[in-house]
């Protein structure tokens, strides 16, 4: 098929304020990860607007390709995927397996990261960002991270919680001085 016969992808529209009706079930059905599961991480965070006001109606989806998947063939839930939503205070929490380091096309390794999709009332099209982990030594050599202006790089890095192993803190700023880096797509 030639390039000009390609179809144009459908336009995006906001998820609106009432998405829980249709989207919450998938949060509830994620396979539980016990606190002592090897490789389990937890990200606790907030979504804030331009004024630092919490966004109580955001959905976040986390994706990491998992090269080795150990779940059963009957499992309807993809291992590398998690959905979460913010509460009335704009807070979210998500438990997932720590992503693996994955290669670029040229063979260089990327630091472990997850692709994050942010949906909310007010967002006509979802946002695309990545989250990295503070204690991963590969961050300083990661091509994607190093391409980002130094002063904004920290917006993509989840901080380790002081008293909890494998637990991270990450704030998404939709707009403003501390605006999170979002990618074009």
């Amino acid at each position: 098929m030639t390039e000009d016969s390609r179809l144009i992808p459908a336009g995006s529209q906001t998820v609106g304020p009432f998405f829980r009706i249709g989207l919450e079930y998938l949060i509830d059905r994620a396979p539980a990860l016990d606190a002592d599961t090897a490789g389990r991480i937890e990200i606790r965070g907030r979504v804030l607007d331009r004024d630092g006001t919490p966004v109580p109606d955001a959905v976040l989806e986390f994706w990491a390709p998992r090269i080795t998947v150990s779940t059963s063939a009957q499992d309807p839930y993809p291992a590398g995927f998690r959905r979460t939503a913010t509460d009335t205070n704009g807070n979210f929490v998500v438990a997932a397996m720590r992503p693996a380091a994955v290669p670029l096309e040229d063979g260089r390794m990327q630091a472990p990261h997850m692709l994050v999709l942010v949906f909310a009332r007010g967002l006509l099209r979802h946002l695309l960002t990545r989250v990295y982990f503070e204690d991963e030594p590969g961050n300083t050599a990661d091509t994607v991270l190093q391409e980002i202006p130094a002063e904004r790089r920290a917006t993509l890095t989840a901080r380790l919680e002081t008293h909890q192993a494998n637990s991270y803190q990450w704030t998404v700023h939709l707009q403003g001085q501390d605006e999170t880096v979002f990618f074009a797509w």
Binding site: G80, L104, T143, V144, R152, Q175, F183
Partner: peptide, 23 residues
Amino acid sequence: SIARSPRMPLVLLPETITEKTGP
């Protein structure tokens, strides 16, 4: 959309295995 949309430039993202795969 006014207070919730990014205003800083969007950054180009290499299309890596993370972006080429999905659930």
